[in-house]
């Protein structure tokens, strides 16, 4: 009886090996990225699903500026994408030491160590038209646009549409559909 079960198991494993599909060049292997890499990939994806107002760019080939305040590791992970383009624009990835020098950014990631400063600056409405992203609690309800939320071992995101509208940004419906939480 057990021998027969084992025969089947072995046969299945052998089948798995033979029937493995033609090798794919772009294997999205799950469970193999670090937290920073996942967050960087998120930021790259967000950029694809956001429309900036025309006034945000001076020329058609002006780079899309992605800025980081804090989060050294995430900045490094993001730098591996610096040769990509989004919406036809090259990427310019930079670090800033304070939130006060960021109005020229199109995307601004704020690490949690700057959250005190973030609460103050968010109130002043200086982030126009900036897609603000952070990974600390209550960012979205406090007026930020996208918050990366840790759910167990997975990372999800929440969105504040009102804040996006106020910043003059248009978020695609796909983004809103996938968000775990949408602040109206």
């Amino acid at each position: 009886m057990t021998k027969r079960i084992l025969t089947y198991i072995l046969a299945i494993f052998c089948l798995l090996l033979v029937s493995s599909p033609a090798p794919r060049s772009e294997a999205a292997s799950s469970s193999s990225l670090t937290e920073e890499q996942v967050k960087a990939a998120y930021i790259y994806n967000f950029a694809k699903f956001v429309q900036w107002p025309e006034t945000a760019f001076l020329s058609a080939n002006e780079p899309l500026r992605i800025c980081f305040v804090g989060s050294e590791d995430l900045f490094k992970a993001m730098e591996s994408l610096s040769d990509k383009t989004i919406q036809g624009r090259p990427l310019k990835i930079s670090k800033r030491s304070t939130l006060k020098t960021t109005p020229d950014c199109h995307i601004l990631f704020i690490s949690r160590h700057y959250q005190g400063e973030a609460w103050q600056e968010l109130k002043k409405n200086i982030f126009t038209p900036v897609l603000t992203i952070a990974d600390f609690d209550s960012f979205v309800s406090g007026g930020g646009i996208i918050e990366l939320v840790r759910e167990g071992s997975k990372i999800r995101f929440a969105v504040n549409i009102a804040a996006a509208r106020q910043a003059g940004l248009n978020l695609s419906s796909k983004l809103l559909k996938l968000a775990i939480f949408v602040e109206e």
Partner: peptide
Amino acid sequence: PSSDLTIYSLEDLMEMEVIS
């Protein structure tokens, strides 16, 4: 393709386990 983070869709990312 290995270090290319651009191949992941939002749906992929949402299901990804972050391991350290």
